[in-house]
Write a protein that binds this DNA or RNA. Structure first.
Lengths: 157, 157
DNA sequence: TCATAGGTTCTGCTGACAGAATAGTCTCGC
DNA sequence: GCGAGACTATTCTGTCAGCAGAACCTATGA
């Protein structure tokens, strides 16, 4: 069986039961392998309960499977608005210096101001994330300095 | 930030903290949004505890993220190939200085080296795109300097 | 009818999680 | 420099929901 994303308790239950029955196994045998109780697994399969990560991990392993947990950006539909920025960066974006540099860069590149602004803010936010740390206003100025320096440095040969 | 697979409680904790701090938020504000207690989130971020699916779902939503749970065949998921990077950045990534700084940052944050490396390269590539200009090696060094400076600067109030 | 296999409901212990208390850090005024 | 206050995170304590095990239910075969 291929990887399947699970959205709700009853769907998790259905997937667990499907996987178990496809392997021709009883709840009791899976329970023994997983170190979980028969009734608990039965209830999960019936969409009841709120399992802990440890229980799910044990259960998945007993089923010869692998539990994967992902923490994604808030799942966008293609028409979703751009992801929200960290607060310090939102404030920084309102500063006259930032706006002036964006206007300048927009004129230089011929790119629409809104596009330029959004690209720069996203880039700065990505740098903050890579640094694993929230931004101060000083950090924001430093990032903008670097970005502007980048735009003014000679092109590569 | 891209989708990241979580294998263990301490890694989940790191991911949760990274996501929260990158957004410049406090545990208290996230806790209020998630309907969870401050101490509980703090302990999860510190790799302690065994959260239920409901708690994790609430927490992810409060972080503007989306919890995805997969039940896979028990083979190791193949690691996705790294997104293609601009050539100068690819070359830069091989330099001893870059590798040393990544090892250092990885140790500081407790994050896997491969994740740290990928995040930083992505951030630098995003900055290059925002500058609307191909990178020179000097540019790469400047970006890395800024990133390292960012990681060492005092946290915001 | 009885025994067995498999699953479901019930009861109670204990760990998930809330809220209080405490610890750590920073800023500001004296 | 020191103390007070504010803010943030961590530790502690207690409640109750996750989960074990007993009891019960249903279907099947001898």
């Amino acid at each position: 069986m291929c990887s399947v994303e699970i959205h709700a308790a009853d769907e998790l239950g259905r997937r667990l039961r499907m996987k178990r029955t496809a392997a021709g196994r009883t709840i009791a045998s899976v329970a023994a392998d997983a170190g979980l109780s028969v009734p608990y697994i039965a209830n999960l399969e019936n969409g009841r309960g709120n399992p802990t990560l440890a229980a799910l991990t044990s259960l998945a392993q007993a089923l010869g499977a692998h539990l994967r947990v992902h923490l994604d950006e808030d799942s966008p539909s293609p028409t979703a608005p751009p992801p929200s920025l960290p607060d310090p960066l939102t404030q920084f974006a309102k500063l006259p210096r930032f706006r002036a540099e964006m206007a300048n860069l927009s004129t230089t590149t011929g790119q629409p101001l809104t596009t330029t602004t959004e690209n720069c803010l996203t880039a700065m936010a990505t740098m903050a994330a890579a640094a694993n740390k929230p931004l101060t206003e000083l950090d924001c100025h430093r990032l903008l300095d670097t970005l502007i320096l980048l735009t003014h440095s000679p092109a590569p040969h």
